[in-house]
Design a binder for these strands. Sequence first.
DNA 1: AAAAATTAATTAAACGTTTGTTTAATTCAA
DNA 2: TTGAATTAAACAAACGTTTAATTAATTTTT
Lengths: 204, 204
Amino acid sequence: MEVAVALFAEKGFEGTSIRDLAHQADVNIAMINYYFGSKEKLFVSLLENKARFMREKIDAVQNDTSLTEIEKINQIIDGYVNRFLSQPAFHRVLQQELLVTNREMLHQNVIELFTKNTHDVVAIIEKGIRKKVFRKVDPQLLFASIIGTINQVMLSRSMCNILLNKDPGSDPYQDPELKKRITQHIKQMVQDHLLIQPAIQKQK
Amino acid sequence: MEVAVALFAEKGFEGTSIRDLAHQADVNIAMINYYFGSKEKLFVSLLENKARFMREKIDAVQNDTSLTEIEKINQIIDGYVNRFLSQPAFHRVLQQELLVTNREMLHQNVIELFTKNTHDVVAIIEKGIRKKVFRKVDPQLLFASIIGTINQVMLSRSMCNILLNKDPGSDPYQDPELKKRITQHIKQMVQDHLLIQPAIQKQK
DNA sequence: AAAAATTAATTAAACGTTTGTTTAATTCAA
DNA sequence: TTGAATTAAACAAACGTTTAATTAATTTTT
């Protein structure tokens, strides 16, 4: 299954052959169908296995009445950046399946992973707006901006290296500084956008 | 070639067969290799054909000294939203090729499309910071946020419908309101983040 | 201007691989 | 002795590509 994530991420679902997968995982070709049933079911297993994902975090944040809305948003940003950057390969698999609408069943499976998260985060933003601690922003698109920023950075190693002026060969996702940097940027941007009295920028 | 964009967008490069493509385009299977040489070269042709893309816009904006930095950024946002949303299928093809690192030649081809744009926009933001009309933001990641927001919305029809609470069956990209909405959100967010004295929000 | 010769466009069929999956035999463990 | 795990081999189907034959268009020669 580790091999599957790596290969699907690199070559896509159609681009990955059972033979290649079996060889790299050092198992017989027939074993994959023996245990998973089919290539497609292997993919679904993979989703189910890794899918707990963001849920717990957001549930916990939502029910914590001691947190202000902006604190909730900040914690959610932390959560997303952590989860996404810790598993770049798996993340890439998900993104691919969102882009390719061909295999409808897999596509829907992945979408369901995100649906509830989306609505919950949007609800938090909307609540902040009603309580007048947030500006009247576009909650849905702000959510898109948060996730979209992370996704953009995670699109591909080489793309990320170009964006950040890193060595073409290096692996930017291994750099622990990147997590901090992304988190900080998104938080700052979201705050500037949301808060009615924008926090005064600290000058170093 | 129209058929190719549509199919690659829907099924991905590996997922699209020459046979399916030829059938839908109502030409003989052999014609594709006769005119393009191979499936891969067809893809490259497709890129070259559609690739002029953002360049002119950004070049023009960059050399226009009558524009303030924030006006430049706003025009660039207009440009991106227009280009991306006008050709959702082609955009999806590009995104896929960024995600899949397997076919290195195609991958590099697509990346080159974006490289110059990236650096130019980042340079504009950096100039604004030096001139102290912008806050000390993270220029690279702010660019990622701009593009990433659009990409996030364009990921898939069903995903977009869920995000925006639209009918599951509808095509959100056909809605002319969406362009305006995205443009407005990104501009506002970027302004709030960039400008030292944030514009006073107009209350309707 | 017509006929012949040459080149280009188009076709159906076949090529050799590779694909995901299955089978039937074998090894291993309980 | 029984059932599960593992294997190599074979399966049909689909893949991208090529071939060789045919039709259409163009150029050259009469």
